[in-house]
C-alpha cells in the first residue's frame, strides 16, 4: 500500500520535477549569456555596460525563446507594461505628419556610434511599409499603409495605437518592436508626430 502511494506521488510529481529542471537549465541560459557578455564588452559612447542588464520582460522573452513565456507570467508582464504607458497630458494624440515622416525614416539613435545630443529616430521603415513612395522598407512588421484610413480616428483607436507605440510589450509581450516611449527612445512630441503619419488624412500613408 505504502509503495503504491509513493509511486503515485512520485509519478504525479514527475512532470513538476521535469519542469523545474527545465526552468533551472533555462535560468542558467540567461545567467550564462550575461556572465560571458559582461566579460566580452566595453562601454562605448552612450552604450554603457548597464545595457547588458535585462529587465523582466527581456529576461522572460529570452528565457523561453524561441517559445513564449508561460501564460501566467506573460499576463503579469503584459499588465505591468500596459500600466506604465503615459498618455499625452493635453489629451491630444496627433502632431505633424511631415515631422513624423522624418522620425520614421531616421535609423540613428542609441547606438554606440550615434551622437547622444541628436534626437533618436524611430526607424519605422526598417520593419514596416508606410508611405508607398518609400520602397526601401523592411518586412519584420506588417504593412502600415492606409493605417488610419482603414481604422478611422476614434478615441479608442488612437488610444490603442498610442499605447502600442509607447510600449508594444504591453500588448504583444515578446514583439520585435521596440518600446519607443517605455524605453525613452522617442519623445512625446516625436510620438505625436509619428501618430500623425499613421492617422492624418493628409499623410501619404493614407492616400
Amino acid at each position: 500500500m505504502r509503495i503504491w502511494i509513493t509511486t503515485l506521488l512520485l509519478s504525479a510529481m514527475l512532470p513538476l520535477v521535469a519542469v523545474a529542471a527545465d526552468k533551472a537549465r533555462k535560468d542558467d541560459r540567461n545567467a550564462q549569456a550575461f556572465a560571458v557578455m559582461q566579460a566580452s564588452f566595453v562601454a562605448k559612447g552612450q552604450a554603457g555596460m548597464d545595457r547588458l542588464v535585462q529587465d523582466k520582460t527581456q529576461a522572460a522573452c529570452s528565457l523561453y525563446a524561441p517559445g513564449m513565456p508561460p501564460d501566467a507570467l506573460a499576463a503579469t508582464l503584459l499588465e505591468d507594461n500596459r500600466n506604465r504607458v503615459k498618455y499625452p497630458a493635453d489629451g491630444n494624440y496627433l502632431g505633424d505628419w511631415k515631422r513624423g515622416q522624418a522620425v520614421a525614416e531616421e535609423g540613428r539613435g542609441k547606438q554606440s556610434s550615434d551622437d547622444p545630443a541628436e534626437p533618436s529616430g524611430g526607424n519605422c521603415y526598417a520593419c514596416h511599409q508606410l508611405d508607398p513612395q518609400q520602397i526601401a522598407y523592411g518586412t519584420i512588421g506588417p504593412s502600415l499603409y492606409r493605417y488610419g484610413k482603414l481604422r478611422g480616428n476614434s478615441e479608442p483607436v488612437l488610444k490603442l495605437a498610442w499605447g502600442m507605440l509607447n510600449d508594444m510589450k504591453g500588448y504583444i509581450l515578446c514583439s520585435a518592436m521596440p518600446r519607443f516611449g517605455g524605453k525613452d527612445i522617442l519623445t512625446e512630441q516625436q510620438l505625436k508626430d509619428v501618430m500623425a503619419l499613421l492617422f492624418d488624412p493628409d499623410s501619404p500613408v493614407n492616400q
Partner: peptide, 22 residues
C-alpha cells in the same frame, strides 16, 4: 555552443533586440 546560443537569444538594451529579433 550552448553559450553562443544563449547569447543569440539574449534580449537586452534600449531596443530589446537579440540576434534572434532580426
Amino acid at each position: 555552443y550552448e553559450s553562443g546560443k544563449a547569447i543569440f537569444f539574449y534580449r537586452t538594451g534600449t531596443h530589446d533586440f537579440s540576434c534572434a529579433t532580426c
